[in-house]
Design a binder for these strands. Sequence first.
DNA 1: CTTGACTCTGCACGAAATTGCATGAATAAG
DNA 2: CTTATTCATGCAATTTCGTGCAGAGTCAAG
Lengths: 251, 251
Amino acid sequence: MLTTQRKSLILDMLRREGQVIAKRAAEEFSLSEDTIRRDLREMAAEGLLRRVHGGAMPISPDLPDLSARRAVSSDVKQRLGRAAADMVKPGQTIFLDGGTSTAEIARALPRDFAVTVVTHSPTIAAELEHHPMVEVILIGGRLYKHSMVATGASAMAQIALMRPDIFFLGVTAVHPARGLSTGDFEEAAIKRHIAACSSETITLVTVEKLDAASPHVIMPVSALSGMIVQEGIDEERLASYRALGIALLEA
Amino acid sequence: MLTTQRKSLILDMLRREGQVIAKRAAEEFSLSEDTIRRDLREMAAEGLLRRVHGGAMPISPDLPDLSARRAVSSDVKQRLGRAAADMVKPGQTIFLDGGTSTAEIARALPRDFAVTVVTHSPTIAAELEHHPMVEVILIGGRLYKHSMVATGASAMAQIALMRPDIFFLGVTAVHPARGLSTGDFEEAAIKRHIAACSSETITLVTVEKLDAASPHVIMPVSALSGMIVQEGIDEERLASYRALGIALLEA
DNA sequence: CTTGACTCTGCACGAAATTGCATGAATAAG
DNA sequence: CTTATTCATGCAATTTCGTGCAGAGTCAAG
């Protein structure tokens, strides 16, 4: 990665999140903290940002509109998103479902290796605008307003041409017997179709989704390759999933 | 391969990916890095790009990126957007090109009647998320990072199935003789294709775009149905467009 | 056909930039 | 005050850069 580009990305990160944490940026770019600190020092000298202990802050006091977005993305989902992003290897193609959980994956994707992201969510696609190394394939179709994903015959046909390595599936409910489910029939169909085209299907699960059921079934839990579950859930509640042979990763 | 041609390809790569990495370009063209470096050096001398360690970046350091430009949605563009939205009648289907001007149209669309919006820009699509009456058709394909629009054969095929009433076209330059133009060859092709499928094509023009020309021609000005131009431009500068029979609306 | 000027390309080598690690100082937290 | 981070600087290893140079190809004049 070019250092010039990295500095722009650091500025982006600063604008987006209102701060840059040296440690986090180092992970993000897969570089040592020393390098990030050097960047921050130089950029501070150029007057692009203000150096603080642990990272950097914007030169001017916070812009309000972006801090709002940050507040929405809960800590739990961020952790799940990072764990999911860790599973992705350079050169792979992943399919990101619509939703707030999968949006976190998009944000957490390492910025230093090339990945192809396929998505039928314009929101996710827009999220990846400033990601330097990610190639984005957008699936088109009629947009479902409530979930903001493309659906319909055209979307199905475009998806049928893809063979993603991992499908990160968004669900509203997970139940050991009733399977993975969501609130809309059409959406369930398209999720099922994406899963069928993908080598692996992984879903991100927070407590409130666990052991719940929605009206429209996507697939049995056993069809999953793995689940990334919120940390701190009783082993007891997870047992029935392990019994189904599902790989569980806590984050 | 001709070095002249290679240099254009390098410029394309720069526009497409926002950077050129010497090593990668060398692989791409099956040449030594030395040759690429020489090219980059020469092109930097010609002012076509900015040399950085490891490769090259666009000439303008840190173009105010889309988020910044979006925040600075200028008063002029808002007025142009409103004028464009006023042209749309209930029940019509419009195609919105990518770009900041057309994004203003999306924001200005009346909230009380049903319109179908077709777009190949995930940014525009996301913008319409909270619009109650608008049906959004998203065109998919490989996303061009710098302009954030879907391109490629798949996008072309999806567009070919649509017959929008109005295409609101985004351009970087308008010239009475040299026509409508933009910075990227591929983009020019897709814009031309959309225009061919649409009943009318309207473009929004601010002063700095008027009487200017970019490298890649989209179509002659005479192929337009109309232009919405920024208020307060000398009648003299508009005369040549009127002479071509173009309907001009000032806003 | 031959010759000579010119261009393009790859290789070699010293210079410069970038990065990670180590060390000791500075800072924040308890 | 004590402890754990975080910071700055020096240094070594690696990568990239610029330049000189030689071989191959092109082109035109002789």
